[in-house]
Amino acid sequence: MQLIAGRLTHLVWFVIFTASLSFYIKRGRRIAELPIRRVAGLDALDEAIGRATEMGMGVHYTMGLQDFEAQTFASFEILRYTAGLTAKMDVPLIVSNYRPQVHPVTEEVVRGAYVLAGKPDAYQADNVRFLSDQQLAYASGVVGILERERIAANLMFGNFYAESLIFAEVGQKMGCIQVTGTANTHQLPFFTAVCDYCLIGEELYAAGAYLSRNPVQVGSLMAQDVGKLLALLFITVGTVLSSFGQKWLTDLVKK
């Protein structure tokens, strides 16, 4: 067994990250009590669903053009929380899916949240919908839901592309409160300009920890911060060294 050339830095980085992850997770409860900075978009979830309850209208949830990747897993956490709240408050929740392979998992997450909220009978399978795996056909399906189904809160968390502005503008036109989150840098300007709240990049990944205060999730956040500090250190030192013509650090990270 031989290490592939050019992967040494990746391996060191992976080991450090995994080690800090397990270190912080093992610290359990003490970690869970650490403060997490306020994320307005996540606090607004309760407000959005509360508003839908008062108006007697529904909540729409989309994960965008999701596949089984990190943003989708982060979005499942928010969906589970949202479905639990809508179940408790007896608000209809419509979830629209883009990827057929993600659809059954979405169904399970929503159904599970309804069961855990003690309202298994309130779960409606027809409200978790696969629309299309063609981007703009999916977009027209979501627009149809926003325009026809009396939606008061439009929640969008995950992987969005050209359809993001279409959803946001139609939601705005329909008077929905809109809470969004994505790590797709190219769609952030649209969400921040049009929607009421937007989770930016890593805030989406922190959602699970923020909503559940689960020690595992909070520990993972701490490991991410260690990673960020290391990245900052490397960027600063690397910039200074490169500015003075020293390339040894650049060469080292290429190994």
Binding site: F17, A70, R111, G112, A206, K228
Partner: peptide, 27 residues
């Protein structure tokens, strides 16, 4: 944004692989 998001993605991916992330499991 990309560095922060990449670290977040790495954290969540590791949690999924290690079975520590259960948001996608119905429970």
């Amino acid at each position: 944004i990309v560095i922060g998001a990449a670290l977040g993605a790495m954290g969540i991916s590791l949690r999924v692989i290690l079975g520590l992330e259960r948001g996608h499991l119905s429970g």
